[in-house]
Design a protein around this nucleic acid. Structure first.
Length: 352
DNA sequence: AAAACGGGGGG
DNA sequence: CCCCCAGTTTT
């Protein structure tokens, strides 16, 4: 299909049916587009909007984000998941502040140097905020192109990915690149959806190879799956008779990096001994709660919550950095992963 | 309860 | 290149 015809159909559809009321589309500066693209990598539009608006009120520009404490950035991100992305965003803002006078360089190579920005995100920023002719290849576009040209194979394979980039470049128009970029993403998100796509209203249906072969469901090929291993840990719900609960900040990288969580003790280790040695606390160990299974992309985590009561009067002060005695009212002030927040909510309910 | 989903960093 | 990274939404 002629690229001009392809983009014209996509743009005509967009003019009639595209989403135009999104917060990041009003005043689409490079910074605002960047933040929206990072949030949208992991979460659907409807969920992102309130997070995006809160984030923009608190961090209206790169300077504000660069000056913030990581803790506060993570707090506003908490619940969105993929916390490494929030850390990269924050790091990148600091780099921009130091090296680029708090401006985003409107250059594809310079953008890709920044942590958390790859080819597709860099392309989206430049196309949407600067009108540069750059291709994008997010999940929506991958699916649309894979179907349109019946591209076989899982897009995680570099050969397949390269073929899709080739197509993305091929179909890019010369005019209205910002609208086109938004349009292909919207078309993938609204019409060419993962299951039971709405081919009957698709502007590209006449020339879609997958549709012609009635093989829409075959593209893109799914990621080959593997059995997920299971890890198990104990989370210690350490509380005092003042109803304070001990939280520990997790190491800066890795799972839930930089977020607040309960102290973790390996399965099989004696909890009272562990508390004495690692926390300097004498505790009374109570019966464990039922196991909570938490799914990650590479393993399952079986969490055994073990409530323990600090045996001594609660005058204990942890001087060590990275610990905090939580009490009610702190809830909004710490970034916590979802299962930790759920556990804490249950615990607070019990002790109130 | 299980499966689907996405883009980028790092080895 | 392939593997690692998380949590919400959908089935």
């Amino acid at each position: 299909m002629d690229p001009m015809k392809f983009s014209q159909r996509v743009l005509d559809w967009f003019d009639a049916h595209g989403r135009k009321q999104l917060p990041w589309k009003e005043n689409p500066t490079p910074y605002r587009v960047w933040v929206s693209e990072i949030m949208l990598q992991q979460t659907q539009v409807a969920t992102v909007i309130p997070y995006y608006e809160r984030f923009m009120v608190r961090f209206p520009d790169i300077r504000a984000l660069a000056d913030a404490e990581q803790d506060e950035v993570l707090r506003l991100w908490a619940g969105l998941g993929y916390y490494a992305r929030a850390r990269y965003l924050h790091q990148a803002a600091q780099i921009l502040h130091e090296r680029y006078d708090s401006q985003m360089p409107l250059d594809i190579a310079a953008l890709q140097e920044l942590p958390g920005i790859g080819r597709s995100t860099a392309g989206a920023i430049l196309a949407l905020a600067a009108g540069q002719r750059q291709p994008i290849l997010d999940g929506n576009v991958k699916r649309l192109l894979a179907r349109f040209k019946a591209v076989d194979g899982w897009p995680g394979q570099s050969r397949v990915q390269a073929a899709l980039w080739e197509l993305a470049e091929h179909f890019m128009p010369v005019q209205r690149i910002a609208d086109y970029t938004q349009a292909v993403m919207d078309l993938g998100a609204i019409v060419c959806i993962p299951h039971q796509p709405h081919c009957e209203i698709c502007p590209l249906v006449e020339d879609c190879v997958a549709f012609a072969q009635k093989r829409q469901a075959d593209f893109p090929a799914p990621k080959p799956r593997r059995e997920l291993p299971v890890r198990a840990i104990q989370m210690l719900l350490v509380r005092t008779d003042n109803n304070e609960v001990l939280l520990e900040r997790r190491p800066p990288a890795g799972i839930w990096g930089g977020l607040w969580s309960f102290p973790e003790c390996p399965i099989g280790v004696d909890v009272a001994d562990w508390c004495r040695e690692r926390l300097g606390l004498t505790v009374t160990v109570e019966p464990p709660w039922g196991v909570m299974r938490h799914g990650f992309s590479h393993f399952h985590l079986d969490i055994t919550p073990v409530p323990v009561m600090v045996a001594e009067p609660s005058s204990i002060v942890m001087e060590e950095e990275g610990f905090v005695w939580y009490n009610e009212g702190y809830s909004a002030s710490r970034g916590m992963a979802a299962p930790v927040r759920r556990l804490l909510a249950v615990l607070v309910n019990k002790i109130v």
